[in-house]
Design a protein around this nucleic acid. Structure first.
Length: 853
RNA sequence: GCCCUGGUGGCGGAAUUGGUAGACGCGCUAGAUUCAGGUUCUAGUGACCGAAAGGUCGUGGAAGUUCGAGUCUUCUCCAGGGCACCA
C-alpha cells in the first residue's frame, strides 16, 4: 500500500505555486476584493506549532475566498522593531539588525513550508527605512494637525526595560513584557492624541458587528465614558476655585470634604510652604497607585487648612490632599460624599467627618435611614436632605443639580474618559527615530520632510545600560533646521505599536515611494477578515482604529475602521514537564512508560504540569520542523483546524497529530486506489441512480452546502468533521451498480475540492491523480444543487408523552395524517400508549410525531 | 468588588437554533492481517438493569414554561478570562 509522500509532494506544489505566481494579486477595481490578514509576527527566532494556528486559519479563508472568485489579498510581513532584538544584542553581542534579519530568514522559510498562500512579493519588514520613513512623515503630519504633542507628565517607567510604557502596556501594575513593577516618573514625552477620538472610537464599536462581542466590550471599558458634571468650589480666602469632577451631582448636598491628588498643582503649590505636606506627597508618589491597592487600600489624607465653598448652600468644606485621588482622571480633584461612596465613607470615618445621607433608598424611612459601614451607592431612590432636590429620583436630581450649577456659573454637565493619550516615546534603540530636533533657541523643531528618513545609526554599543542613541558620539548632534545653530536630535524612538498601527495599509502598496497609494487602499481597505490573538484587544486593535482616523484626518485615507471583521483565535497548549530540580523539560525529553509513568530519557521521574500556552520559557513547545518533517504541513494544518473550535484553546497531543496523519493517508488511498473504476473526468451522472448511489450523491451535495456554510462562519472543526463523514460514506460503497464510477468520481472530486483550503498540497496531488491538468488552486469552489442536498425519505422520531419510542421512515413532505397514522401503527408506540386513547397528536412535518395520552 | 465567557461520555467536541443528545475524531475493548511492533481492516464503546428483546436514568445543581428543554425563564454552584482607589 503506497504511503503518501508528504515531503516530496509539498515541495513540488510549493514550487509550482511559486513559479506560476499563483497567489500574486494586483489592485483590480473590476473584480470583487477580499483582504484577509493575520496579525504579523515579531521575528523572535523560530516558529513552533503554536504560532501557526492563526496563519493556517487565514490561509483557509484566503484559499476559500479565492476559489469563490474573489481577488484575494493575503500578505505577510514582520513587526521587526522591538526589545528582544536589543536583549539579544546585550546577551550575545549580535547587532539587533543582524539578529532580526536572521530570524526573518528562518521564519520566512518555515512559513513557506507550511504552504501558506501569501503574495510574498508584498513582504515588508517594519525596521526597514523604506517602511519607517513613512511613519516619520505621518508623525510630522500629526504634529501639524495637533494630534501629536510633547508634555512633561508622570509616566509608567519599567525599570527592567529601562523605558517608558503606555498605559495599555501596564498590566496589574507591571510591565506587559518584563513583569517588573512599574514606577512613576516625571518625564517629557511625546503623546498621540487618541483622546480626540474617544467619542468616535466608542460609538463606532457598535458598527463593528463582525468583531467578537468581548473585544468590543473590553475596548468600551478601556475607553470608559462617564457622564457627570464639573463643579467649581470657590476656595475661601483665595481668588481661585477648585475644579472637581463627579458622576453624582445629585449627592452634592451630602458633600463632607474635597480632596485633591498628590500631584495636583494646588497640592504642589501648598507643599512649597509646608514640609509635612511635601513629605506626604513624596510618600504617595513612592507608593505607586497600583501597588498600594495590592498592599492595603487604606485611605490617607493630609488636611491643607483650605476650605472650599459649597456652590449650593455656601457651607465650607475642608480640603485634603488624598492618596486615593488620581491626577489622571477627571480633574484630579473630587468632592467627597461619604454616605454614597465607599471610599469617601472610609475616609470620613478615619478623619471623623460628617456622614449625611442624601439619597433615600426605596422603602426606607427618611427619619430613620442612616449609613453604617456600607455606603449606599445604588442609583435607586430619591433625593432628601438636599434642599431644592428633595423628592426627585436620582436621574432627575442629577439633571436638576447640573441645571442649577450651570445657572449659577459654578459648573456644567460634562463627560469624563478613562482613556488617556498614547505615550509613544521609548528610551530604546531598536525602534523608529522620532523626527524632531531640540534647539536651544527655537525649542522643538520638526525635521524637514526633505531630510527624512532620520536613519537609525548602526554603529552602536550595548555595553552599558540605557539608550545607545543617547550616548552615541555623533548621531544626536545636528543643526537646527530653523536657525542653523547647534542642536540635538530626539534620541527616543517610537513605541513599536506605532509600526503595527498602519502596516495593513502598507501591504496595499508595499513598494510605493509614498506610505501607500490612494487607489490601492481605496480598493483593498478595510481588511475584510483580520485574525489574531485576544491579547491585542485593547492594544494594537485600539491603536490601529485610532491611527486610521488620524491618517484620515491628515488626508491619507478616507476610512475610519481598518478591520471590518475580526476573529480572535485560541492558543495552542501543551502539558508542561519539570524534573526533580524544577527545571523545565521539552516534550521530546520526556517519555511515558507502559504504566503511564512519566520520566526523562534516563528514567528519572518528571512532574507533569498543567496544560499551558506553548511558550519558550516553559519549553512546552513542539517544533515546526519536527512535525512538518515527520508528517508534512498538511497534516499539521488539518490537526490545527480539526480538534477544537478555532476561538478556543487547542491541546496539542501526539495522538491527535497521528490521527490527522492517518486521515491524510486514508484519503490518499481512497483517491489513488478507488474501490471500483472511476468514470472519465467530466462524465455525466446517469439520470436515475440506484438507492445506495442516490444516497451518496445526495450526501455529496449536502456536504458542499454544509462545508461552505461552516467556512463562512469560521467553523473549521465542523467543516473537517463533515468532510470526514463524506469520506466514510464513500468508503461504504460496495459492488459496482450502473453509474457507480461516475458517482464515485463526483464524490471523490468534491471531497478533494472541499479539503483543498485546509490541505492544499495533498489536494493538488489528488486532483492531478484524478486526471486533471489544471491546478486545483485555480479551480472554482464546488456548487451544490440544493434540491439534491436533501434525502427524499426522512426519519421521523415518534414520541409518546415526549419520550422517544420509535422512528419511522416516510417520504419527504408526507401529510400530517399519513405521519400520524403511520406512527400510531408502530408496535413500540402502541405498547407505550398502553391501551390508552391519544388525547392529542403533535406532528412537526419531516421531523417528529408526539403522541400525548 | 464589577463585567464577560464557559460547564455535554474516559478526552476534544457536535446537535438543523425548542423537535431522535453524543455527529466527527482521540482513547479504549475484542477479533483479523503481521515473525513482532507499527500500519491497515472488522465489530463494539454515555451510565445502570437485562442472556436478549427491551427498560430506566442522563447535558454542573434546583425550580419553572412547554406536547416536547443541552437550547427559553428564575435562582444557585464551579472553572477560566478581563477590569478595578475611574470620583
Amino acid at each position: 500500500m503506497a504511503r503518501y509522500n508528504a515531503k516530496e509532494t509539498e515541495e513540488k506544489w510549493q514550487k509550482a505555486w511559486r513559479e506560476r505566481q499563483t497567489f500574486a494579486v494586483e489592485t483590480d477595481p473590476k473584480r470583487p476584493k477580499y483582504y484577509v490578514l493575520e496579525m504579523f509576527p515579531y521575528p523572535s527566532g523560530k516558529l513552533h506549532v503554536g504560532h501557526v494556528r492563526n496563519y493556517t486559519m487565514g490561509d483557509v479563508v484566503a484559499r476559500y475566498k479565492r476559489a469563490q472568485g474573489f481577488n484575494v489579498l493575503h500578505p505577510m510581513g514582520w513587526d521587526a522593531f522591538g526589545l528582544p532584538a536589543e536583549n539579544a544584542a546585550i546577551a550575545s553581542r549580535v547587532h539587533p539588525k543582524a539578529w532580526t534579519y536572521a530570524n526573518i530568514a528562518v521564519m520566512r522559510e518555515q512559513l513557506q513550508r507550511m504552504g501558506l498562500a501569501y503574495d510574498w512579493r508584498r513582504e515588508i519588514a517594519t525596521c526597514h527605512p523604506e517602511y519607517y520613513r513613512h511613519e516619520q512623515k505621518m508623525f510630522l503630519d500629526f504634529l501639524a494637525q495637533g494630534l501629536a504633542y510633547r508634555k512633561e507628565s508622570w509616566v509608567n517607567w519599567d525599570p527592567e526595560e529601562n523605558t517608558v510604557l503606555a498605559n495599555e502596556q501596564v498590566i496589574d501594575g507591571r510591565g506587559w513584557r518584563s513583569g517588573a513593577l512599574v514606577e512613576k516618573r516625571l518625564l517629557a514625552q511625546w503623546f498621540l492624541k487618541i483622546t480626540a477620538f474617544a467619542e468616535d472610537l466608542l460609538q463606532a464599536l457598535a458598527g463593528l458587528t463582525r468583531w467578537p462581542e468581548r473585544v468590543r466590550l473590553m475596548q468600551e471599558n478601556w475607553i470608559g465614558r462617564s457622564e457627570g458634571a464639573r463643579v467649581s468650589f470657590a476656595l475661601a480666602g483665595r481668588g481661585d476655585t477648585l475644579e472637581v469632577f463627579t458622576t453624582r451631582p445629585d449627592t452634592l448636598f451630602g458633600a463632607a470634604f474635597c480632596a485633591i491628588a498628590p500631584s495636583h498643582k494646588l497640592a504642589e503649590e501648598l507643599a512649597r510652604g509646608n514640609a509635612d505636606l511635601a513629605d506626604f506627597i513624596a510618600e504617595c508618589n513612592r507608593m505607586g497607585t497600583s501597588e498600594a491597592v495590592l498592599e492595603q487600600a487604606e485611605k490617607k489624607g493630609f488636611e491643607t487648612g483650605l476650605t472650599a465653598v459649597h456652590p449650593f448652600d455656601g457651607s465650607e468644606l475642608p480640603v485634603y490632599v488624598a492618596n486615593f485621588v488620581l491626577m489622571e482622571y477627571g480633574s484630579g480633584a473630587i468632592f467627597g460624599c461619604p454616605a454614597h461612596d465607599q471610599r469617601d465613607l472610609d475616609f470620613a470615618r478615619k478623619y471623623r467627618l460628617p456622614v449625611v445621607p442624601v439619597v433615600l433608598p426605596p422603602g426606607e424611612d427618611a427619619r430613620r435611614f442612616a449609613i453604617a459601614d456600607t455606603a449606599y451607592t445604588d442609583e435607586q431612590g430619591t433625593a432628601f436632605n438636599s434642599g431644592f432636590l428633595d423628592g426627585l429620583p436620582v436621574i432627575a436630581a442629577k439633571r436638576a443639580a447640573v441645571k442649577r450649577l450651570e445657572d449659577l456659573g459654578s459648573g456644567q454637565g460634562t463627560v469624563a474618559w478613562r482613556l488617556r493619550d498614547w505615550g509613544v516615546s521609548r528610551q530604546r534603540y531598536w525602534g523608529c527615530p522620532i523626527p524632531v530636533i531640540h534647539c536651544g533657541a527655537c525649542g522643538i523643531v520638526p525635521v524637514p520632510e526633505r531630510d527624512l528618513p532620520v536613519l537609525l545609526p548602526e554603529d552602536v554599543s550595548f555595553d552599558e545600560p540605557g539608550n545607545p542613541l543617547a550616548r552615541h558620539p555623533t548621531w544626536k548632534h545636528a543643526r537646527c533646521p530653523r536657525c542653523g545653530s547647534a542642536a540635538e536630535r530626539e534620541t527616543d524612538t517610537f513605541d513599536t505599536f506605532f509600526e503595527s498601527s498602519w502596516y495593513f495599509a502598507r501591504f496595499c502598496s508595499p513598494r510605493s515611494a509614498r506610505a501607500f497609494e490612494r487607489h490601492d487602499v481605496d480598493y483593498w481597505l478595510p481588511v475584510d477578515q483580520y485574525i489574531g490573538g485576544i491579547e491585542h484587544a485593547v492594544l494594537h486593535l485600539l491603536y490601529s482604529r485610532f491611527f486610521t482616523r488620524a491618517l484620515s484626518a491628515c488626508g491619507y485615507l478616507d476610512l475610519k475602521e481598518p478591520f471590518a471583521g475580526l476573529f480572535t483565535q485560541g492558543m495552542v497548549c501543551h502539558e508542561t514537564y519539570r524534573d526533580a530540580q524544577g527545571n523545565w523539560l521539552f516534550p521530546e525529553e520526556v517519555r511515558r512508560d507502559a504504566d503511564g509513568r512519566v520520566g526523562d530519557a534516563q528514567g528519572r521521574p518528571v512532574t507533569v504540569g498543567r496544560n499551558e500556552k506553548m511558550s519558550k520559557s516553559k519549553k512546552n513547545i513542539v517544533g515546526l520542523e519536527t512535525i512538518v518533517g515527520a508528517f508534512g504541513a498538511d497534516t499539521a494544518r488539518l490537526y490545527l483546524l480539526s480538534d477544537s473550535p478555532p476561538e478556543r484553546d487547542l491541546e496539542w497531543t501526539d495522538e491527535g497529530i497521528e490521527g490527522a496523519w492517518r486521515y491524510v493517508n486514508r484519503l490518499w488511498r481512497l483517491v489513488t486506489e478507488p474501490a471500483l473504476p472511476l468514470a472519465p473526468p467530466g462524465a455525466a451522472l446517469p439520470a436515475a441512480l440506484p438507492p445506495a448511489l442516490d444516497r451518496l450523491n445526495r450526501a455529496v451535495h449536502r456536504t458542499i452546502l454544509d462545508v461552505t456554510s461552516d467556512l463562512d462562519q469560521f467553523r473549521f472543526n465542523r467543516a473537517v468533521a463533515r468532510i470526514r463523514a463524506l469520506t466514510n460514506a464513500i468508503e461504504e460503497i460496495d459492488g459496482a451498480p450502473r453509474g457507480a464510477g461516475a458517482v464515485l468520481r463526483f464524490a471523490l472530486e468534491t471531497a478533494v475540492r472541499l479539503v483543498a483550503p485546509m490541505m492544499p498540497h495533498l489536494a493538488e496531488e489528488m486532483w492531478q491523480a484524478l486526471g486533471h491538468k489544471e491546478m486545483l488552486a485555480d479551480a472554482p469552489w464546488p456548487a451544490a444543487d440544493a434540491a439534491l442536498a436533501v434525502e427524499d425519505t426522512v426519519t421521523y422520531a415518534v414520541q409518546v408523552n415526549g419520550k422517544l419510542r420509535a422512528t419511522i421512515q416516510l417520504a419527504r413532505g408526507a401529510s400530517r395524517e399519513a405521519a400520524e397514522s403511520e406512527a400510531l401503527k408502530h408496535e413500540a408506540v402502541k405498547r407505550a400508549m398502553n391501551e390508552k386513547q391519544a388525547r392529542k397528536v403533535i406532528v412537526v412535518p419531516d421531523r417528529i410525531v408526539n403522541v400525548v395520552v
